[in-house]
Nucleic acid binder design. Sequence first.
DNA 1: CTGAAAGCGCTAACAT
DNA 2: ATGTTAGCGCTTTCAG
Lengths: 343, 343
Amino acid sequence: MKKTSVTIHDLARELNISASTVSRALNDNPRISQATKDKIRTLATKLGYQPNTIASNLRTQKTHTIGIVVPLINRYFFSTFISGVEDVAFEAGYNVIISQSKDLFDKENRVVHSLFSNRVDGIIVSVSMQTNKYDHFNLFANKNIPMVFFDRIAPDFKAHKILIDDFKCAHMATQHLIDQGCKRIAHLAGPTSLNTYRGRMNGYLDALKKNKLPVDEELVIYNRLTRVDGLTAIKQFLKLKNPPDAVLCGNDTSALSMIIYLREIGIRVPEDFCIVGFSNEPFSEVVTPAISTIRQPAFEMGQKAAELLIDEIEQKRIPENYQTIIMPSDLIIRESSSKKLYD
Amino acid sequence: MKKTSVTIHDLARELNISASTVSRALNDNPRISQATKDKIRTLATKLGYQPNTIASNLRTQKTHTIGIVVPLINRYFFSTFISGVEDVAFEAGYNVIISQSKDLFDKENRVVHSLFSNRVDGIIVSVSMQTNKYDHFNLFANKNIPMVFFDRIAPDFKAHKILIDDFKCAHMATQHLIDQGCKRIAHLAGPTSLNTYRGRMNGYLDALKKNKLPVDEELVIYNRLTRVDGLTAIKQFLKLKNPPDAVLCGNDTSALSMIIYLREIGIRVPEDFCIVGFSNEPFSEVVTPAISTIRQPAFEMGQKAAELLIDEIEQKRIPENYQTIIMPSDLIIRESSSKKLYD
DNA sequence: CTGAAAGCGCTAACAT
DNA sequence: ATGTTAGCGCTTTCAG
């Protein structure tokens, strides 16, 4: 085992030239003649030279690395988003460091610091469910290190934002339930400190108002939208003296657990009760009844986020206007809300 | 905007001490008095000092970064595995760089080189579907940089391996189908250049032999196990003069597409036809009929991989014996193969 | 308990 | 077209 790697100095010594020439040649600098380039490259492969990116990073103050912070890596929406980021980043010569907040503010805070210390060239973030202050991002903001927020955004930063129109989607979904003949529509909401859940909530409320339907406080429950939370919520809804006949869920996971519970206790979906979810998780298509939901273009959002971030990194100057990009999304109507078919 | 960050030299100058003392203090070196440590730390937070990990990495020849190479980031098994790795790595002070091969050998080769150039302290790998040569890993092997392989492993390396017993699982699944009364059991296999699919195939064949059932070449199809591949395969199986009455699928995705197709054309599952999948994707539990499948402990495998890798990184010496860890896995019997209930 | 000095491997003025 | 030199920010012998 060699004690240490072969460096540009080793190549330089061997060829009786300077290290800078070697460096230039390997970076394809036009100031070096083709002949020397060839000579150097041949020797490099012969000796198995591999560039030390760390040294280059330190010197150039650029790491060609971008950091991603998401709540949970193994949620389909996020993993697909990450896949889109990796796709674009790799082709542009960037590495991707991932970290998950586990929906905990404290962990988010720590990973953001860690990414900063690792001098990533920029970060792409969807904040945790607990996050309601955003000081930790000043680390990046103060140094004008590019950030892109997606899905759950931190407000008030000079950064690109990639979103879907949660308000419109929830509005469409609610209108759809009304059109199907649902009379009392409930909503299972996530924390409204987050733009996404706030938007969904407001879209729901607005659709009710537009249709002159009463807004009943009992019909809105807030929680973290896990499978257990979905179960708790549906039980609570059904216990009301005047229970709902439909629920718009803040995500598919809670929608799924409601559907399973309703099936168990013999309430037919969609004949007796309608459900709409959010995010189009893979299972929502194949469960019986298939869950009506909102499609979010996760992969494309990831690609777009990476493009915007890398553009900002590479044109060092600060963009004059930061964009808020609303990605296309749509309501997928499936069995779980297709009540009319059974009337 | 500050032109450059605050460094240990800035702190040193301010306090009229040397940079080495500052460095030691910040690293909690016992040779520094508590008083100076306090003084330095106070100033550090006051000036918003953030350590430059890159510089430290260059100096110490350690990056505290591990690389992951998987076929596809947004497959549940892999994203959950990654989540497990991140969990352990973060707590141990390591970053995680992810890259996906997209099941392409060429991309795998490129990302492995890129991870090497970034001087990751070790890598965790599941190879691509196309991979059948393994020279690119010599980059790491030659320098004794730790590697851990999981799921789809590269043979013949001095490295820990984390697996499930594919042979046994496929054997159990096949036996289960036989016990349910299936007479002609087919197998949809992945490339047998990979240990996983080879093991599953052999387990299937062995179970047939043990039960003195004939092995019919027509009943085995090889492909890439996508949703389209599953569809192609089931159609092909059904076209045989003597078609099967069950399929053991190499993964859940192909099992799912078979189930959907069978439902469409009116063949009842499990009454007329049984299906077993592999990997316990989230959808397999909720589809109707729910898919019998093999549970792999993805998160725990990720944790274990990270532990083994970090252990090997930190005890610089080479382990005398590399482990092949067989993780527990089991057959989950669900509706798609519960034929006896209907007899 | 603290300081001086060297160097990790590379790049980029500034020379020639 | 190539060489010289300095330095990115940190750690770490060696000295005191």
